[in-house]
Write a protein that binds this DNA or RNA. Structure first.
Length: 310
DNA sequence: AACCCCTGCAACCGCCTAATC
DNA sequence: GGATTAGGCGGTTGCAGGGGT
């Protein structure tokens, strides 16, 4: 048996592989090598067929908006089960989906990358911390949010989620991660290294009437695509130190069924007086804001200067 | 023009599981 | 029942091309 060939496939090799599949079907990959047809492993042959030679593949075609949505939704549901996800996307392979997802994650991580806050600024508890990028949920905190430890929850844990899901962010403060819960989704989408977490103090400084709401519905596909111009507006708002004010005075109770809310010590009516979780008797959600996130928001984000330039 | 950086993509690697011996 | 093999899958790597400086 000759040496095993690696590296890019040549057209002649493809032809041999195609002929083999025509004769015997997409199986017996190992026999290709044992018969001396190719000096490739069965694995390599199979991979080449599945990813490049199989009929009806969308080679060289970018993911459509619908496909992107589907990947995001399916990834939220199945996790990194690329092969399974690919079965929902005609013409796409697990490799396609995997590459799409990882490049997207990289892109978002870069977008949301935040520079280190200088120590002098950190030590100054009176100075509000101005974040250079939309803050994110520390996903690992989501599983341990308690009344005693009302972590400064930052939204935007999953940009793709927000971009593509007009529903309010679902944060379920449960003691244990649930399979197929949104929490799992957050865990999987945590951008590494962990993006900076707002400190409690600055959280309070920024938001005198903090209210974060919870719902248990799974992510849903968006039903409308806002205009691109809205993206620009939103990006302007994201860069605004007072950005979080949009979460105050939520006006749209929406269709969710929130059952908990986070109330700061500066909370308003019904506040328990201390920071912490409380039953939400009269939920008001920031739906309207979240719903405003356009599909292409992060495409526009990329057009902004990098955080280091801010 | 040269260099660097980023991105997308193809292919490989390692692990796991099922089938076969 | 254990060992071996093949196939499947997710993670990772390496490279080519494009864009910016």
């Amino acid at each position: 048996m000759g040496e095993i060939k690696k590296g890019p496939w040549k057209a002649e090799e493809d032809e041999v592989l195609i002929n083999h599949v025509k004769k015997y079907g997409p199986k017996d990959w190992s026999s290709i090598r044992s018969k001396g047809l190719l000096h490739r492993t069965g694995k390599s042959c199979r991979l080449r067929w599945v990813n490049k030679l199989r009929p009806n593949l969308k080679n060289g075609v970018k993911f459509s908006v619908d496909e992107e949505r589907a990947v995001i939704e399916l990834q939220a549901e199945f996790g990194n089960k690329w092969a399974r996800i690919a079965t929902y996307l005609p013409g796409r392979t697990d490799n396609d989906v995997k590459n799409f997802w990882s490049s997207r994650q990289k892109r978002l991580a870069r977008i949301l990358q935040t520079p280190q806050v200088p120590k002098s600024q950190k030590n100054n508890s009176e100075s509000p911390v101005i974040h250079d990028a939309p803050p994110t949920v520390k996903a690992s905190n989501l599983g341990c949010l308690t009344k005693e430890e009302p972590s400064p929850v930052n939204l935007f844990c999953s940009p793709s989620y927000i971009v593509h899901n007009p529903k309010p962010i679902s944060i379920v403060p449960l003691p244990e991660p649930l399979p197929n819960s949104n929490m799992c989704y957050f865990e999987q989408n945590l951008l590494q290294p962990e993006l900076d977490i707002m400190e409690k103090k600055s959280w309070q400084d920024h938001r005198q009437q903090t209210q974060i709401f919870f719902q248990e519905q799974p992510p849903r596909l968006p039903t409308e695509v806002p205009l691109a111009s809205e993206s620009q507006d939103l990006m302007t708002r994201l860069g605004d130190p007072n950005f979080f004010e949009v979460f105050e005075n939520g006006s749209d109770s929406g269709g969710s069924n929130p059952h908990l809310q986070y109330v700061s010590s500066y909370g308003t009516e019904g506040s328990c007086g201390n920071d912490g979780w409380k039953e939400n008797d009269n939920p008001v959600t920031p739906d309207s804001f979240i719903h405003d996130f356009p599909m292409d928001m992060f495409d526009h984000l990329e057009m902004l200067p990098s955080p280091s330039d801010w």
